[in-house]
Amino acid sequence: MELTPGVVFSVGVLFQDGTALPPVTAFGLIADALEAAGDGAAAAAWRAQLATLGGPARRFVAVRHDGGALGAAAGFDLELRRDADGVAVATASVNAGADGDLEPAAAASPVGSLFAPPPEPTPTPARWPPLPIRGRPRPSPFATFLEQVELADDALLVPPIPGELRALRRLVRAERAQGERGRDELVFHVYELPPRVDPTVTNRAPRVATLVPGDRLPESYAALGPDELGLFDERNRPLLPPAPLPGPPPYADVPVVILGSGDELRALVIPVGPSGDHAPFEAGVHRLRFAIDRARWRSETADDVSRYRAASTRVVSW
């Protein structure tokens, strides 16, 4: 059904992970999924509906005893009385609209002229989950994906991305830190995936920004709590509810021997066993962590200024 201005309707979306999303967010996710599937025309049609989703509006609905709308042309005599002494200060006779709403007619009457216009709604970020869902809880189909997201030095290692999350472009990690005045404050570390990412392999999302109190924050980030991870598309729309950042996986250190080239631009990393002999890697997922900690000049204090320090982690599988 194509939506047109003036149509009154309710939209509720419940995705497979049991999360209720606002209509604007839900419509955007559906449009992104259609576009990823190659149906650009359908995606454009869904995005066109976003313009018809207005914000909250004041309504004055006349209902029957069973809660249903009374219907059109029902007449009412309105009388506005002063609270102090009960004296009527304005009266009007109005008819309900097609959906039983008296607001348009009342607003145009002498009674409506005494009301102040409704204030602009203040957007309040929803805290996930917004409402408990009745029935037996179902595990999220993205639980395995979230458990495999790994913090590695100054980046996040992102496992193969499910098809439902192809719009994923930005990951945000909230962390409690101590501010300049010694107060605890919430900071947001922002990580971004490369523009062209292969969703079938593990990708590295480097940290591109750290936002602190006073910086301009997208409203969607406010739903994140300490030590939680949020997944967002390129417009900072949430794709999933915030989830706790998983701890580091139990990797085992493997001794290696490194053979470098003469120009020091290439190297062979050879895994060895306890005896020092070559021991091939077993099939699975392996992390390669490269780190450097080298003096730049002599200094009494070995800090990040006098020493060159950097680290990077890559994930390989075979």
Rank of each mutant, 00 (worst) to 15 (best):
S261W: 03
P238E: 12
Y221L: 15
L239K: 03
E228F: 01
E228P: 01
P255R: 15
L240T: 12
V254Q: 06
A222Q: 09
A223Q: 15
E234S: 09
D233V: 03
P242L: 08
Y251D: 04
P238G: 07
L268W: 03
T210C: 10
N203Y: 01
V208E: 01
L231D: 01
E264A: 07
T210G: 07
P250F: 05
N236F: 13
V201R: 15
P248I: 08
S220K: 05
D227K: 12
P238W: 07
A222P: 03
F232G: 00
I258K: 10
A267M: 11
P241E: 13
P206A: 15
A222D: 14
Y251V: 10
E219H: 10
V269P: 02
D253Q: 12
P249Q: 11
L240Q: 08
P242Q: 09
A209G: 06
D253F: 09
R235S: 09
A223H: 00
V269L: 12
P218E: 12
Y221F: 13
E228R: 13
P244D: 14
G247E: 15
A252F: 03
V201C: 06
V257M: 02
N203Q: 10
A209P: 00
G260R: 12
P249V: 02
L239Q: 02
D253T: 09
P241Q: 14
E264D: 13
P249E: 13
E228L: 06
D233C: 01
L229G: 00
V256Y: 05
N236R: 14
R237L: 10
V208W: 02
P206N: 13
A267Y: 11
L217Q: 02
F232E: 00
P206H: 09
R204M: 12
P241A: 15
V269E: 06
D263H: 05
L231T: 00
L259F: 05
L268Y: 09
P248D: 15
P248M: 08
L265T: 06
P213I: 02
G260E: 15
P246R: 15
S220L: 08
G260C: 05
P213Y: 05
D263N: 15
I258E: 08
R216H: 05
R216N: 04
G230F: 04
L239W: 00
G230I: 04
R266C: 04
P226D: 05
L211V: 06
V212S: 12
R266P: 00
P213S: 04
R216A: 11
P213E: 01
P226F: 13
T202D: 09
V208N: 01
L224Y: 02
P218L: 03
I258R: 14
P246N: 10
L231G: 01
P255H: 12
G262R: 14
L245T: 04
G225E: 11
D263V: 11
P250Y: 04
L268F: 08
E219D: 09
P206G: 07
A252M: 05
I258S: 07
G225T: 07
T202K: 03
A252E: 10
A222K: 14
G262C: 02
L229D: 01
N236C: 02
P218F: 08
R216L: 07
D227H: 14
G214V: 04
L240F: 00
R235Q: 13
V212L: 12
P218H: 11
L239E: 01
G214F: 00
L245S: 10
L231A: 02
P218I: 10
P242V: 07
A205I: 03
N203M: 08
P238M: 07
L239N: 00
